[in-house]
Deep mutational scan, measured.
Amino acid sequence: MADEEKLPPGWEKRMSRSSGRVYYFNHITNASQWERPSGN
């Protein structure tokens, strides 16, 4: 997916099972956040 290609290394887009909202998860640091991480 083009959107995921633009995410910084380690980040992936996921869907919250409880709320149905999109969030972002970093599998390197195990961090998660609602806001899209910047690629800069």
Score class of each variant (00 low, 15 high):
Arg21Phe: 04
Met15His: 02
Gln33Asp: 02
Glu4Thr: 09
Leu7Ile: 02
Trp34Ala: 15
Ser19Phe: 05
Tyr24Val: 00
Arg21Asp: 09
Arg17Ile: 02
Pro37Leu: 00
Asn40Gln: 12
Met15Asp: 07
Glu12Tyr: 03
Pro8Asn: 02
Phe25Met: 02
Arg17Glu: 15
Lys13Arg: 11
Tyr24Pro: 01
Ser38Glu: 13
Tyr23Lys: 07
Gly20Val: 01
Met1Gln: 15
Ser19Arg: 07
Tyr24Arg: 00
Ser16Val: 10
Met1Gly: 08
Ala31Met: 12
His27Gly: 10
Thr29Leu: 12
Thr29Trp: 03
Glu5Cys: 09
Val22Ala: 15
Ser32Asp: 02
Arg21Trp: 06
Tyr24His: 00
Ser32Ala: 12
Ser16Ala: 08
Glu5Gln: 12
Gly39Trp: 09
Trp11Phe: 03
Ala2Lys: 12
His27Pro: 14
Glu35Trp: 06
Met15Val: 09
Pro9Trp: 02
Pro8Leu: 02
Met15Phe: 11
Glu5Ala: 09
Asn26Lys: 01
Asp3Pro: 15
Glu4Arg: 10
Arg21Thr: 06
His27Leu: 11
Pro9Thr: 10
Asn26Asp: 04
Tyr23Asn: 00
Val22Cys: 12
Ser18Ala: 04
Gly20Thr: 03
Ser38Thr: 15
Glu35Tyr: 05
Leu7Pro: 01
Glu5Val: 08
Val22Arg: 04
Lys6His: 10
Ser32Phe: 06
His27Arg: 15
Glu12Asp: 05
Trp34Asp: 14
Asn30Asp: 05
Ser32Ile: 04
Ser16Pro: 03
Tyr23Gln: 04
Thr29Asn: 05
Ser19Ile: 10
Tyr23Ala: 03
Asp3Gly: 10
Pro9Leu: 06
Ser19His: 06
Gly20Asn: 08
Ala31Val: 15
Met1Trp: 05
Thr29Val: 04
Tyr23Phe: 15
Pro37Asp: 01
Trp34Cys: 13
Thr29Gly: 02
Gly39Gln: 07
Arg17Ser: 14
Pro8Thr: 00
Asn26Gly: 00
Gly10Gln: 11
Ile28Gly: 11
Lys13Gln: 15
Ser16Gln: 13
Pro8Ala: 04
Ile28Ser: 14
Pro9Ser: 09
Asn26Thr: 00
Val22Thr: 12
Pro8Tyr: 02
Ser16Phe: 08
Gly10Val: 02
Leu7Gln: 02
Arg14Tyr: 04
Trp34Val: 13
Tyr23Gly: 03
His27Asn: 06
Pro9Glu: 12
Asp3Phe: 14
Gln33Lys: 04
Ala31Pro: 00
Ser38Tyr: 04
Asn40Gly: 11
Asn26Val: 00
Trp34Gly: 08
Phe25Val: 08
Tyr23Arg: 02
Pro8Trp: 01
Asn40Ile: 11
Glu35Pro: 04
Trp11Asp: 03
Ala31Thr: 15
Ala2Leu: 10
Asn30Met: 07
Lys13Val: 11
Ser19Gln: 13
Asn26Arg: 00
Ser16Gly: 05
Val22Trp: 11
Gln33Gly: 03
Lys6Arg: 10
Gly20Ala: 06
Ile28Pro: 05
Glu12Val: 07
Tyr24Ala: 01
Trp11Val: 02
Tyr24Glu: 03
Leu7Phe: 11
Ser18Val: 10
Glu35Thr: 13
Met15Thr: 14
Ser19Thr: 12
Glu35Gly: 06
Lys13Glu: 12
Ser18Lys: 03
Gly10Arg: 03
Ser16Glu: 13
Leu7His: 01
Arg14Pro: 00
Ser32Val: 09
His27Glu: 11
Gln33Tyr: 08
Ser19Val: 09
Arg14Gln: 03
Tyr24Phe: 09
Arg36Gly: 03
Pro9Asn: 07
Ser38Asn: 15
Thr29Lys: 07
Trp34Ile: 09
Gln33Phe: 02
Glu5Tyr: 11
Ala31Glu: 15
Gly39Ile: 10
Val22Pro: 09
Phe25His: 10
Ser32Leu: 06
Glu35Gln: 09
Gly20Gln: 14
Tyr23Cys: 04
Gly10Tyr: 05
Ser16Ile: 08
Arg36Thr: 11
Ser32Cys: 14
Arg14Ser: 03
Ser32Gln: 14
Trp34Phe: 13
Trp34Gln: 12
Asp3Ile: 05
Arg17His: 15
Met1Glu: 09
Pro9Met: 05
Gln33Pro: 00
Glu12Trp: 02
Phe25Glu: 04
Gly10Asp: 06
Asn26Glu: 01
Glu4Tyr: 08
Gly39Cys: 11
His27Thr: 15
Arg21Gln: 13
Ser19Leu: 08
Gly10Leu: 02
Glu12Gly: 04
Arg36Trp: 05
Asn30Trp: 01
Arg36Cys: 14
Ala31Gln: 08
Arg21Gly: 11
Leu7Arg: 01
Trp11Cys: 02
Gly20Lys: 13
Phe25Gln: 06
Arg17Asp: 03
Gln33Ile: 04
Arg14His: 00
Asp3Lys: 10
Lys6Met: 11
Pro9Ala: 11
Pro37Ala: 01
Met1Ile: 12
Gly39Pro: 11
Pro8Val: 01
His27Met: 13
Gly20Trp: 01
Arg14Met: 06
Gly10Glu: 06
Pro9Arg: 06
Gly10Cys: 05
Ala2Val: 12
Lys6Leu: 09
Ser32Trp: 14
Ser32Gly: 06
Met15Lys: 10
Gly20Pro: 05
Gln33Val: 06
